[in-house]
Simulated scan of single mutants.
Amino acid sequence: MFTSQGPTARELAVQALSSVERGYDLLSPKFDRTPFRTPDRMLDAVEETLAGREGSFGAGLDVCCGTGAGLGMLRRLCRDRVTGVDVSAGMLAQAALAHPDGVDFVRADALALPPALGDSYDLAVSFGAFGHFLPAERPALFAGVRAALRPGGLFAFPIGAPLPPSSRVWWMLAGFDAAMRVRNAVWRLPFVMYYRTFPLSGVRADLRAAGFTVETVPLEHFGRREDGSPHWRLVLARRP
């Protein structure tokens, strides 16, 4: 799964025993050479879908931008300023190296976005970060994003279809989540990262409770399951 330039098993173990912020500070120089980086195929699918439905946007915000995988897409979609927000200084440093011009960077917890970002953006996106938030934290997360958007602004992110328990991947993810719960129960510094705590039904309800209108569109780039439902959807949550 990892290239020879990626993190070693020891480095991953150290990260796993650190806090989320410190763990990503440590991993940041090699993060883009791991499978955890959002694939370009996903970024391209989201960009194409947003461009086809919405055209262009004014200002853009990448929530939990990490090393900046989504910032290039955001810059192409947005006419005005683009901002990347992340809690990890190390990840932001890598993002700044990849995008030295045209992007502002803000170090902040996504659960407490700075008031200065309020009513400023026409598009907010996020990729691969929602496993770092417990279900009870989603209302605060979504409320903060809504406050950052201008009226009519859009919060967009991909979400995958649930995997059947007969799938090998389902058991892998269930095993990872179980191990993470044990780790957090016995280790002082919590590292929140779960793969099965972000179901569409609960997410939709929390977005609506935060004041969004919500629709989803299939990301046809990834095909459909045997029952005809898409493997991936793009959630479009709009601030009225």
Results as ranks from 00 to 15, higher is better:
Arg79Met: 07
Arg79Val: 09
Thr83Ser: 02
Thr83Lys: 09
Thr83Gly: 05
Thr83Trp: 04
Val85Pro: 09
Val85Arg: 05
Val85Gly: 11
Ala89Cys: 06
Ala89Lys: 02
Ala89Met: 12
Gly90Asn: 08
Gly90Glu: 06
Leu92Gly: 14
Gln94Pro: 07
Ala95Leu: 10
Ala96Lys: 10
Ala96Cys: 02
Leu97Lys: 04
Leu97Gln: 10
His99Phe: 01
His99Trp: 07
Pro100Phe: 07
Asp101Cys: 00
Gly102Leu: 04
Phe105Ala: 06
Phe105Gln: 08
Phe105Met: 02
Phe105Pro: 10
Val106Asp: 06
Arg107Leu: 00
Ala110Thr: 10
Ala110Pro: 07
Ala110Asn: 08
Leu111Arg: 14
Leu111Pro: 14
Ala112Asn: 03
Ala112Lys: 08
Ala112Pro: 06
Leu113Ser: 03
Pro114Ser: 12
Leu117Tyr: 01
Leu117Gln: 02
Leu117Lys: 01
Gly118Ser: 11
Gly118Leu: 02
Gly118Asp: 15
Asp119Pro: 02
Ser120Asp: 07
Ser120Val: 05
Ser120Asn: 12
Tyr121Phe: 14
Tyr121Asn: 00
Tyr121Leu: 01
Tyr121Trp: 04
Asp122Ala: 11
Asp122Val: 01
Ala124Met: 11
Ala124Glu: 13
Val125Lys: 15
Ser126Arg: 05
Ala129Leu: 14
Phe130Pro: 09
Phe130Ala: 00
His132Val: 08
Phe133Glu: 06
Ala136Tyr: 00
Ala136Lys: 03
Ala136His: 00
Glu137Lys: 01
Glu137Asp: 11
Glu137Thr: 06
Glu137Asn: 01
Glu137Phe: 00
Arg138Leu: 14
Arg138Gly: 06
Arg138Ser: 04
Arg138Met: 03
Pro139Phe: 10
Pro139Val: 12
Leu141Ala: 06
Leu141Ile: 10
Phe142Cys: 02
Ala143Glu: 13
Gly144Glu: 06
Val145Thr: 01
Val145Gly: 04
Val145Tyr: 02
Arg146Leu: 13
Ala147Gln: 11
Ala147Lys: 08
Ala148Cys: 11
Leu149Ala: 02
Leu149Lys: 00
Arg150Cys: 03
Pro151Ile: 12
Pro151Asn: 12
Gly152Gln: 05
Gly153His: 10
Gly153Val: 08
Phe155Lys: 03
Ala156Phe: 10
Ala156Asn: 12
Phe157Asp: 08
Phe157Ala: 12
Phe157Met: 14
Ala161Arg: 15
